[in-house]
Design a protein around this nucleic acid. Structure first.
Lengths: 190, 190
DNA sequence: CTCAGAATTGGACACCTGCACAAGGCATCC
DNA sequence: GGATGCCTTGTGCAGGTGTCCAATTCTGAG
């Protein structure tokens, strides 16, 4: 069994990893900078984790899960047409280079070259879509599953573009984004 | 002045850079692997370019510009409601880890930490949106500018999620994505 | 043919990397 | 007290990094 103290060090290392990933990028995180940031010796990284990569994967996955869970917490009780605005409101709350955004994108990209990470992220996204789908379905939105798919993708795309385009505000986007919840044209109606 | 031969080497280096960025990631491109891939000596990199970073930036920007130009070529003559399907068709034509997709995402992420690159990409995206806006406007789509914004972001988001979700097909997404072109709820009539 | 200047080479430099490991600190048990 | 573990440290290693540069080859104009 590990002591509370060692748990703390593990936690600090994961925290430092998340901070460094967003600040300098996934591949710029080294064992030494990581240990220094966490305030421990360089050797500790390979005592608590099998490898630097394993540490980074765990840091990213837990961090992403936390963001997703938080976004989903207040979701099920709202109507999609209002809840969408609520979600968009968070877009403005974050600075253009929101740490969570960068963490997600860094992880997506790292997953391109790491099967374990890819599996973890896929699982995470499926969970997110399951909740979104149920939420949309309760709100009477047509084709809820695909809409959830598209909504999740659009959210990530918006976050990505927002880093390069600070003018992109929620007020601007909201009315157009709402079209995604509208029923298809009359002739295609089911 | 530089000879045609030297132009060829420059071109080869930029080509090799784009290939390596998509294969191994932006930060994994080293002067030596780059030179080896291009079939030249390691010292040539810093003869033709001010730094490795400058080479990577130029490689990414020219590559992205080419992709954008190609996507825009056959755009202005089509109706948005049909052209959207045409654009989506390309989604299926590319493998899940499409090189162009990875190049874009890698560049977006690198731009987070490089002001020059960020400026270049911003300019590129503005040009893309200008064309998209005109295209949507000609098609009678409401709020064409914001719609273009959102469409560009959604495209990038879809590409990103597609790497993690090969089940995501154009056939599935198309009907829902079409909602983005529908009139806003205020003018809704059915 | 000559030869200046461009193009290219491969190695030197100082630095950083992930990981392994011997050595010691330290708390908790008998 | 002693001692048995976990925890932590700093260093060593082999290798990779960007950048620079003297030396060499190539090329094309006079």
């Amino acid at each position: 069994m590990s002591t509370p103290k060692s748990h703390q060090v593990r936690h600090d290392l994961l925290d430092a990893a998340r901070a460094l990933i967003t600040e300098r990028g996934w591949t710029a995180v080294s064992t030494r900078t990581l240990a220094q940031r966490a305030g421990v010796g360089p050797g500790l990284v390979h005592y608590h984790f099998a490898s630097l990569n394993a540490l980074l994967n765990e840091a990213a996955l837990t961090g992403m899960a936390q963001v997703i869970d938080q976004a989903l917490t207040h979701l099920p009780r709202t109507d999609p047409r209002q809840g969408l605005d609520q979600l968009l409101g968070k877009l403005d709350a974050y600075p253009p280079n929101d740490p969570a955004t960068v963490l997600f994108t860094e992880a997506y990209l790292a997953a391109t070259r790491d099967a374990d990470l890819r599996e973890g992220i896929t699982e995470l996204l499926q969970r997110l879509r399951t909740h979104l789908t149920a939420w949309l379905e309760d709100g009477g939105i047509a084709a809820p599953e695909t809409t959830a798919h598209l909504l999740a993708a659009t959210a990530d795309g918006l976050m990505l573009h927002r880093s390069l385009d600070p003018d992109l505000t929620a007020d601007q986007v909201a009315p157009v984004l709402h079209r995604l919840l509208n029923p298809p044209p009359a002739e295609e109606q089911r």
